[in-house]
């Protein structure tokens, strides 16, 4: 019998998983081989003796538990890390929303103003890419929510408008009493503070000019004015009106 096989059978015999036929084989073999019998007996003695041995050192679970309590708080398990992460996330969201809210509020309260001095004229391009040529001593105020739902500006003085075409957002010009609504067109408005009349001349497209519940629809080449004193809204005869008819 080879050494490997011999120790294998000894192991099975000593640890109690030997089959009956293997046991028989081992007994026969040991009886026929006194040297191996001697080894077997010696191993058996060692085995039985070691079976009664126990570890001298015995751990103390109570002490270990106390140490473990410290370890686990240093360890910072995933759940705690997740809570930290959640706190950070919430703080970040509050900051972002708060900052956005503040920006929105500040943005809202400040409409943008363009102005010209006496003798000065200038072109202004609005956020919707409409162009305005401001005559002298004119003030144009662009509302803070310009271009959100509608395009609202107010005017004192005189300006020529070239409105970028955008049907869904009407362009509204508030002059102290008259209101001009346009979609995509170009026209001139004169609303001089010192004069009693607000005048409009349409160069192209279609414009609604209204004041005091009255409204005039003006098309290319038409002009109109509103008299602040008499509250009269009227068409002005211009050459092109005749050519249209």
């Amino acid at each position: 019998m080879k050494e490997q096989k011999f120790f294998g059978l000894c192991a099975k015999h000593l640890s109690g998983t030997i089959e009956a036929d293997e046991e028989q084989k081992l007994t026969l073999y040991l009886n026929a081989n006194p040297d191996r019998q001697k080894i077997f007996q010696s191993l058996k003695k060692q085995w039985e003796f070691s079976g009664n041995l126990r570890l001298s050192y015995q751990t103390n679970p109570q002490l270990a538990w106390e140490k473990f309590s410290d370890l686990k708080s240093d360890h910072e398990p995933k759940a705690v890390r997740w809570v930290h992460f959640a706190y950070r996330l919430v703080a970040m969201m509050v900051l972002t929303v708060g900052l956005g809210f503040l920006l929105r509020e500040f943005g809202k309260t400040e409409p943008y103003r363009y102005a010209t001095f006496e003798g000065e004229t200038k072109w202004v391009v609005l956020p919707d890419s409409s162009r305005v040529r401001m005559n002298e001593s004119t003030m144009l105020t662009v509302e803070a929510d310009f271009n959100e739902e509608e395009r609202k500006v107010s005017l004192t003085g005189e300006a020529f408008f070239e409105i970028a075409r955008e049907v869904s957002k009407p362009f509204i010009i508030q002059t102290d009493e008259a209101r001009t609504r346009a979609l995509g067109t170009s026209f001139n408005i004169q609303a001089l503070a010192e004069e009693s009349k607000i005048e409009i001349y349409v160069e192209s497209g279609k414009v609604a000019f209204s004041a005091k519940d009255k409204e005039l629809i003006l098309t290319k080449g038409m002009a109109a004015d509103f008299d602040k004193k008499t509250n009269q809204l009227q068409l002005i005869m211009v050459d092109s009106i005749y050519s249209n008819q």
Partner: peptide, 15 residues
């Protein structure tokens, strides 16, 4: 069983 047989072999050599 193989591990135990290895132990016995080692014990045999040691002793």
């Amino acid at each position: 069983e193989t591990q135990i047989s290895n132990v016995l072999k080692s014990f045999f050599n040691t002793f």
